[in-house]
């Protein structure tokens, strides 16, 4: 029992990341009909937004501290971040500590801009071209983006800690009245899951309950007719692209403390996210979310030692195996709509 709960919990945070990326991919595919291989790179750029903000916040100047001396007896040089000068030491430290959550605010405009620039500058010219061309050009773009990040930030992972308030672990078992220290779960992963739920809920609410969302949904169903009604659907779709980029970026920002960002993390997630999208059904938003969580949880179940003893190596291949089975038995994926990307 404990083991099962623990595995479900373990699957949630990875599943959240899959679901968020797959949601953005599906938004882009459903609205613009573009297969975006650069979406993983957007996730990675989001994570590096967190890195950048924490670097900006810890940007410091050297001050000579007369009261202390180093081992040679000279006055000690201390690095003082500028935020200390502006906000005072206590508030400044708190701001540095909370760099990752603050990066959410920082990343939204950045990601919206990146998404907008990508759509207007490149993807726009590829609507009429075959899917293979879209895959190839976005694949090239992903390489360029990750190489730019590599050039400025280096090839090594950059640790980006969560606020110290979230560093501990949460004892689920004790809360549910079971044995203590059986089901422990880091706070930050819980935060990540809650955050993902909020974002997914917000995206759905936005599409469901606002006029803008209604127009976008109408455009997804029949772009031509919406255009004939005198609505500038292209403009709205561009905004949706920016939104999808922002969702991927936020997923990346919050993932930075879980896995230290490196330049190829986007590519690692991209392959899995595509599998997730295809399993969920091309163009189906609920399908993408469902498949994301499902595959995340399945992956963590497969890495249980009992399962591995039974079928060796299953933890490495489970996602791909599920994808192959689903693609062959349910051609449209779990919740795919009829007529979307059928061959």
């Amino acid at each position: 029992m404990e083991a099962i709960i623990l595995q479900i919990l373990n699957g949630l945070d990875k599943g959240s990341a899959y679901a968020l990326i797959a949601l953005g991919l599906t938004l882009i595919f459903g609205t613009l009909g573009v297969v975006n291989f650069a979406h993983g790179a957007l996730f990675m750029i989001g994570a590096f937004c967190a890195v950048t903000l924490s670097r900006i916040l810890t940007w410091s100047h050297t001050v000579i501290d007369e009261t202390r001396t180093d081992f040679l007896g000279n006055p000690l040089k201390v690095e003082v971040p500028y935020v200390h000068d502006i906000f005072g030491v206590a508030t400044g430290d708190a701001i540095i500590d909370w760099a990752v959550p603050l990066a959410i605010l920082f990343s939204i405009p950045v990601m919206l801009f990146v998404g907008w620039a990508m759509e207007r500058g490149l993807i726009k010219h590829f609507y009429k071209r075959p899917h293979a061309d879209q895959i190839l050009v976005t694949f090239g773009l992903a390489i360029v983006m990750q190489e730019i990040i590599k050039y400025y930030y280096g090839a090594n992972p950059i640790p980006t800690p969560a606020p110290s308030a979230f560093t501990g672990s949460f004892d689920f078992g004790a809360m549910l009245g079971m044995a203590e220290n059986q089901i422990i779960y880091p706070y930050w992963r819980l935060v990540y899951f809650a955050f993902a739920t909020v974002i997914i809920g917000a995206v759905f609410a936005f599409l469901q309950f606002t006029t803008f969302g209604m127009v976008v949904r109408a455009g997804m169903a029949d772009r031509e007719t919406v255009g004939l009604l005198g609505i500038n659907i292209d403009k709205r779709f561009t905004i949706m692209f920016g939104l999808a980029a922002a969702v991927a970026g936020l997923a990346g920002v919050m993932y930075a403390p879980i896995n230290s960002p490196n330049y190829h993390m986007g590519m690692d997630f991209l392959v899995l996210s595509f599998v997730v999208v295809v399993v969920g059904g091309m163009g189906s938003l609920p399908g993408a979310v469902l498949a994301g969580f499902l595959l995340g949880i399945l992956e963590s179940f497969a890495s249980m030692s009992i399962v591995i003893d039974l079928i060796p190596g299953i933890n490495q291949i489970i996602i791909y195996l599920v994808a192959i089975i689903i693609l062959l038995t349910r051609p449209r994926g779990l919740m795919g709509r009829k007529g979307v990307m059928e061959d």
Binding site: V35, H131, I135, V271, F274, V275, V278, M282, P312, G313, Q316, I317, Y320, L321, A323, I324, L327, L328, P331, M341, D343
Partner: peptide, 30 residues
């Protein structure tokens, strides 16, 4: 034989999945 039952992006994903499976198995169990 398995992958060619689908075409387009699904074919790409299927071949990708098989290759990644081979890679993961070659790296661990095999």
């Amino acid at each position: 034989y398995v992958s060619l039952r689908r075409s387009g992006i699904y074919f790409s994903i299927l071949t990708l999945a098989f290759a990644q499976m081979s890679f993961a198995l070659a790296y661990s169990v095999l």
